[in-house]
């Protein structure tokens, strides 16, 4: 029971509500903790490394654009292509689409959708 209790369940909403206004953590650390990616402690360690390692820091400056907030997310499109080949993922997402009656050349095979 201890082990289960100790391991935090990721993506819990109450957890985020608690973490959100904790100003001791940076937003990136909050997200890492929330997603259960080995907690904030390790993230802090990484932060320290960045400050010590002059080389790494300089390279980050070269990146430049990364410092700005992005509206269009950076996605790994190859992974996505794989993901949408997967039947389960497709079926899961199809629930988010309304099934419209179609009038088109290929209306037949599109209309005969599986039930949700």
């Amino acid at each position: 029971a201890q082990a289960i209790h100790g391991r935090k369940q990721p993506y819990r909403v109450a957890e985020l509500a608690k973490l959100m206004y904790n100003d001791m953590l940076s937003t990136a650390q909050v997200l890492q903790t929330w997603r259960g990616q080995n907690g904030g402690a390790e993230a802090e360690g990484k932060e320290d490394d960045e400050e010590e390692d002059g080389l790494f820091k300089r390279r980050r400056e070269g990146g430049g654009a990364d410092d700005d907030e992005r509206m269009v997310p950076r996605l790994d499109y190859e992974a996505l292509e794989e993901k949408w080949k997967d039947e389960d993922a497709v079926a899961k997402l199809r629930r988010r689409f309304a099934r419209a009656k179609v009038t088109g050349a290929n209306a037949e095979d599109l209309g005969s959708d599986d039930d949700n």
Partner: peptide, 14 residues
């Protein structure tokens, strides 16, 4: 294709 995948991701986020 990438744009379509990006849209599917956005829809998937709900």
């Amino acid at each position: 294709k990438k744009c379509a995948y990006q849209l599917l991701e956005a829809v998937g986020q709900g």
